[in-house]
Design a protein around this nucleic acid. Structure first.
Lengths: 233, 233
DNA sequence: GCATATTTGTCCGTATGTATA
DNA sequence: CTATACATACGGACAAATATG
């Protein structure tokens, strides 16, 4: 499948989703997956216009397919569609950031609140923490950000609900847009690795209430940091 | 715009959305809104295939536009897309119902939990309850179902979050698909009007914890009723 | 199992409308 | 205000997959 090769190999944490795509997937879904990756990685930065004509040529697909892929990503809030003007990579406002964190507090705090014993998903969280340690050692700050996302994605799976899982996926993808708009990724990821470890410890100990307190503080601090960075920019 | 006229006038509770549509909307969005309405009202029942060729002719739109509208509704989980086979109105499984209620419990219980005084959204809830009373008097069971949805949609707005608001919209639209698959709509809506009143009373009194208890019980009972109806069908 | 008809997936050319220099 | 560029919408075409007899 030449389209996939053109767009480069996947290295992210959506392998499961891609696995499905390789078996049976329409051009549109492949396209959407490829574009999603580029947006999330920051290759297409927030605010950038995605030109229909240009992308059709470089990706060797028709306008129709491309437009359908645009629709999908617009619905995921990664793109915005301005009528008769085209599509652009989403730029999050401060209000968006606040709202994203509202959802995160709702989902993530609830996910851990009622824990009384170590859940099986703790394995995934531990793996994410390890990935974070490795990225930190390599000073790979984007990798650290990815590991951080993986950790909280795993927290989302505690709810054991496909719909909440998808909600978290979308919310965290949106949040990536924020990080691309800001310089110094280290500052925005490094402090939280240690705090993830604390949260994980509480979860492994089956101490839901403690995990919730730590999580809430984590989210409030993280939100605050981003919001104040926005105000200064 | 002939398309809109063909599909009949809107009478539902999405007038605000439509208001925007009349000013500036693409054919695709109009199409999607029209199809969405038909699905939600049960004119296209769950499991029904939506034929591309046929709909193109009756709605006087091109296949491309129709397919884009399909894409939107698929993403809202109202349609399912089977590769090379077409699109069908979604049929919810028992697992889907359980998951929908998991999300409802998360969102709705959290929305009321921390209340300490009467919120302004209580006006909308009271309006929904009144609409329910009227529908009941007219023995308009579908109208009663709509009023019920409006009530819980208003509960969703307590979170004061656009994303959670949209989540609730989608979740409740999905739930409508369930009702269409089952006979005797009266049984599934009538008992809950009284309980909405109780919940509203607790909310108006600013008694969050009590509202949460009532809400949780409401949702558990409602879920149970639907699940057992599924088992017998 | 095979051949046929139908439907979907994809792409193209073009006409119209809209935004912006 | 005009001109240019671009997005929107349409209809037609053909290959590929599926359903039907």
């Amino acid at each position: 499948m030449s389209l996939v090769r053109m767009l480069g190999a996947r290295v992210d944490a959506e392998l499961d989703a891609d696995r499905r795509l390789f078996d049976r997937a329409s051009t549109v879904e492949l396209l959407a997956a490829a574009l999603r990756e580029r947006i999330i990685k920051g290759i297409y930065p927030p605010g950038q216009k995605l030109d229909e004509g240009g992308l059709c040529e470089t990706l060797k697909v028709s306008r129709n397919s491309l437009r359908e892929a645009f629709r999908l990503l617009t619905h995921e809030r990664l793109l915005v569609h301005e009528l008769n003007r085209g599509v652009f990579v989403r730029k999050l406002t401060v209000d968006d950031v606040v709202d994203v964190y509202r959802v995160r507090k709702l989902v993530e705090c609830n996910a851990v609140r009622t824990l009384t014993e170590r859940p099986r998903q703790a394995d995934d969280m531990a793996a994410a923490v390890n990935a974070g340690d490795l990225a930190m050692k390599d000073e790979d700050w984007r990798g650290l950000g990815t590991a951080n996302m993986m950790f909280h994605q795993a927290v989302g799976t505690l709810a054991d609900s496909p719909r909440i899982h998808e909600l978290m996926r979308n919310i965290l993808a949106e949040l990536r847009l924020v990080f691309h708009t800001m310089a110094d990724p280290r500052r925005f990821h490094e402090p939280y690795l240690e705090r993830n470890k604390e949260i994980l410890a509480a979860i492994e100990a089956g101490d839901g209430p403690r995990a919730e307190r730590l999580m809430l503080k984590y989210l409030e601090d993280s939100e605050q940091q981003i919001v104040s960075a926005y105000r200064n920019a």
